[in-house]
Structures are given as structure tokens and as C-alpha cells.
Simulated assay, not measured.
Amino acid sequence: MPSIFISGGAAGIGLATAERFAAEGWTVGVYDVSDDALAAVQQSHPDFITGKLDVRDAQQWADALADFTSHTGGTLDVLDNNAGILLSGDLADISPEAVKAQIEIDALGVALGAQAAHRYLKATPGAHLVNIASASAIYGQPNIAVYSATKFFVAGFTEALELEWAPDDIRVVSIWPLWAKTALVADTDAKSTKTLGVRLTAEDVADKVWESVHPTGADKVLRRTSYSVGLQTTLLGNAAKFIPNVLNRGVNKLLSQ
């Protein structure tokens, strides 16, 4: 049966994605840095393969993927680079540790995961790398500047690898949600959570991950690389492509300040 490895998979969008794929008969790997969250998953989903993973550590990535693929006959159909954190606040006010943690988990962790997974994905025909981006990469967002910047990294990284890995028959995509009802959002005071609302659920994002690895029609032929989640993200993303930058800036200032 096909298999998916999910980083940061023990809660929120990661867990919803695990449940979505498991319901379709996939072998699911949930790897996370939180012992408590992993213990809860092991109790509620004993069929999931679970393990400890700090995405900032290349050796832990190698060990985790080796562990998971030992249960799948060495194959990996999808790596879901889901792990991420958000620490809001003006850049002048947050700690250097908060800056470093977001860059290391949300950007470095994505790159290290892709690098470690490449040999497994290359060996599995039609494999996918899924990177969780964000609507905050449509235009840089104040109060979450570092987080927003890491999602610009994810967007560019996805586009680059889509080209780089095409000869290896690995499809690379990114998922672009706006605010979803998860713990990631619960502790942020970004204004856009109020102006735009928190309308998405973790399940909405999980459904889009499922859609992204089952492309049909034009998505498959044209090698679509980005998937917006929800009407708001789609409208904002499309507007940003066509309206003048000064107008785009004004819209984002109105929404976020």
C-alpha cells in the first residue's frame, strides 16, 4: 500500500492529514518532536507508525526515514514537510531565539527533510514532496515577519525542486492555507486573524494535501506546483499576480495593520 511520512504530524494539520490518508488505506508515519503528542497518537491511532524527530537535525531525519521505510519495504510515496512554528510579534520585540527557531524549523527543517527523503522518493515511481507554505507568502506580513519570510522560502524552494527533481519523476508541490483553527494560530495576535477571520479547519488543509498528490486533468499535465486552500487565499493570491504593487501593498496594510 502507498505510504506517507508526516513531520510535525502529531497534532493540528499534520494529524488531520495522517487521518485523511489512513482513511484511504495508506501506511502513515507520524513523526514529531513532542513526546506527549506522540504518546497521544499512539494511544488513539495504534496503526500509525510513530517516532521522534527534530527537523533541525539532519541525522534525526536520516534515522526517522530509515525507521519508517523499514515498515514499507523501503518505499516512500509522499513526504509531507508539515512541521512548523509561528511566534508572533514585532521583530524589534521578539527574542533572537524566537527568530532563530522559526528559521531553523520552518525553513532549514524543510530543506533537510527534502534532502534526506530524495533517495527514497526517487526510488518510488510517481512520488511526491509536499511542502506546507502559507498565504503569508503572498505578501510579507507584519507582526509575523520571520514566519512570513520562511514561507517565501518554502514557495521558492518548492519551485526550484519541482524543476530539479522532475527528471527523477518526483512531483513537488506546496500547500497555501490562510489561518486554520489549530494551536499554531491560537497564540498569535496577528491582526489578519481578525480582519480575515480563522475560517479553515485542519481537515480543509488535509483535504488539499490529498488533492495535491492525486492530480487530474490540467493539474497533472501542467505540473501545478501550488495549491491554495480556501476562497480567500485563492482571491488574494490571484489579485497579487495582477494588481500593481502599490495597490497590493495597500490591501495588505489594511488587512494586517
Rank of each mutant, 00 (worst) to 15 (best):
P96T: 14
G74T: 12
L65V: 14
P167K: 14
G25Q: 09
K194V: 00
I132A: 09
A202D: 06
Q102L: 11
W26Q: 08
A206H: 01
G29R: 09
Q115Y: 00
E97D: 10
A155W: 04
D36T: 12
V33P: 06
F152D: 11
S228E: 14
H71R: 15
G197N: 01
E164A: 15
S174K: 13
A40H: 07
H128E: 02
V146E: 07
T201E: 05
A11Y: 05
L247W: 10
Q115P: 00
K194R: 01
S136G: 12
L255H: 15
N143P: 00
S148F: 02
R199D: 04
D106L: 03
I132R: 12
V251Q: 11
L87H: 11
I85A: 03
L222R: 13
V172E: 09
P96W: 08
G8D: 09
D187H: 13
A190E: 04
A39L: 08
T50M: 12
I13Q: 08
E159A: 12
V246W: 10
Q232T: 12
T124Q: 06
Q43P: 06
L235C: 03
L200V: 02
G14F: 13
W165G: 06
G84A: 03
E19T: 12
G73I: 12
S228N: 15
T234H: 11
G9E: 07
I49A: 11
Y120N: 04
D80Q: 01
I243E: 07
A58H: 07
E162Y: 14
G14R: 13
A22I: 03
Q59Y: 02
A10P: 00
A18W: 14
Q257Y: 15
V221H: 11
D204W: 03
D93Y: 04
P215A: 04
S44F: 08
P125N: 07
D36Q: 11
K100G: 00
F242W: 08
A114S: 03
G197H: 03
V99C: 09
A22G: 10
A183T: 13
L53D: 13
K181M: 08
T17Y: 08
I13M: 14
A206P: 03
Q60K: 07
G109I: 02
W176P: 10
L222H: 09
I243F: 07
G84F: 02
A39H: 03
G109M: 03
